[in-house]
């Protein structure tokens, strides 16, 4: 049993930066849609689109103070580039989604 669920959440490195608060909040709010779009692309077998979405997240997440999220997205991007097995891609998207679910502004 977890004493505090907050221990599990990931916060932006720029949480204390007033200039950033608005766009970080927007980023976090939109994140579930981005992950959902990646799941849809995966289900539809549209790997090129999935890669583009992962690539964009890889490039941007660090800028919003979530470098680990960027690394998880990079694994999806690289996996598709390397022509990895569909199961590998699916599991990497799963890891990315699980990490994204822990993100708070």
């Amino acid at each position: 049993m977890r004493l505090s669920p907050d221990l599990n959440t990931v916060r932006s490195e720029f949480a204390g930066d007033p200039d950033m608060s608005e766009i970080v909040a927007l980023f976090v709010r939109e994140l579930p849609q981005r992950i959902a779009a990646m799941h849809s692309a995966l289900t539809a077998g549209n790997l090129e689109h999935l890669r583009l979405l992962a690539h964009q997240l890889k490039g941007a997440a660090g800028g919003y103070g979530f470098p680990k999220l960027g690394e998880a997205a990079a694994l999806v991007d690289q996996g598709i580039k390397d022509g990895c097995d569909a199961n590998v891609i699916r599991s990497r998207v799963g890891m990315l989604a699980a990490f994204a679910a822990r993100i708070r502004p």
Binding site: M20, Q56, A60
Partner: peptide, 15 residues
């Protein structure tokens, strides 16, 4: 840049 995320970031970071 094709990502709106990057444009938002640049607008704030270069303001």
């Amino acid at each position: 840049d094709d990502s709106e995320l990057i444009h938002r970031l640049l607008r704030v970071r270069l303001q």
